[in-house]
């Protein structure tokens, strides 16, 4: 039943196509889940993105999901007194804390490099800036390190061949959010290309938020931090005292 909406959509869409004929250059899309709740049993989320596009043979679909942007620090270790210590760092501002680029075939085949650069499609073509005042000028290695480490942490990904096209009209793709995602609004952009030219786009959002017990704890720890600390201590005192009472009688 998880993908009920998907099947319903497919049926309705095919009916509407046959009745009204095609509207020009449009994409419609929906998500199996628009709100992702991070609760105590959160292990990541797998979301189905599905929709229809007005396509011809050879058309391409690229799906870009971008999370909240912000500060990410890259540190470099150097050998000091025989030990490896972080000595230098670069702060990258405006860095997406989650990014996934999915497509129906390799990006290189869909777009030439100039288009990739100008439309910022590809992990190395993002408009990420170093914080003003950064002393390290030749930072190509650092930028590569950022990409490499974001991929290792599963926060950035390129999933070529993961968008499935069907009869030049339907597409679907699974979006994977790892368990370490940061909360916020995730922007989903669906791009429809015909021989390397963008002909239509569609946008959607996924809301990732903490919920339930773990959200409450997180919020209390952030907003009432001293009280939270006192409570944590009192709880520990109570449990320590309680076990003493229990085991004394045993």
């Amino acid at each position: 039943m998880k993908h009920f909406r998907y099947y319903l959509f497919v049926i309705i869409f095919s009916i509407s196509l046959s009745i009204e004929g095609k509207t020009e250059n449009q994409i419609v899309a929906d998500l199996s889940q628009e709100n992702v709740k991070i609760s105590t049993n959160f292990l990541g989320a797998k979301i189905l993105l599905f929709g229809a596009y007005d396509g011809k043979p050879g058309d391409d679909i690229i799906v870009i999901v971008t999370g909240r942007k912000g500060l990410v620090t890259v540190q470099k270790k150097e050998k000091k007194f025989g030990m490896w210590v972080n000595t230098k760092k670069i702060n990258y501002i405006n860095t997406p804390k989650y990014l996934s680029i999915s497509s129906n075939r390799p990006l290189k085949e869909i777009l030439d490099e100039n288009t990739q650069k100008s439309s910022q499609i590809g992990l190395n073509f993002l408009n990420i800036r170093t914080q003003p005042g950064s002393k390290i000028l030749n930072n190509e290695n650092w930028r590569e390190a950022l990409t490499r480490n974001m991929i290792i942490s599963k926060l950035w990904s390129v999933n070529e061949n993961s968008v499935i096209l069907n009869k030049n009209a339907l597409f679907r793709s699974y979006l994977n959010l790892p368990s370490n995602v940061t909360v916020g609004k995730f922007e989903v952009k669906i791009l429809h290309y015909r021989s390397g030219k963008l002909i239509s786009t569609e946008k959607s959002t996924i809301n990732v938020s903490k919920s339930g017990f773990s959200a409450q704890i997180y919020n209390i720890a952030q907003n009432y931090s001293t009280l939270y600390g006192i409570f944590a201590v009192l709880l520990a005192v109570l449990i320590g005292w309680g076990t003493n009472l229990i085991f004394r009688k045993v």
Partner: peptide
Amino acid sequence: TILQASQNQTVDIVLATILLLGSVVGVQ
């Protein structure tokens, strides 16, 4: 604990509680 919680927000009460439940039993 109180200072770490108020200054750095690094006290994980869930982690601490699971650990201490194990440890108080273990001690006995």
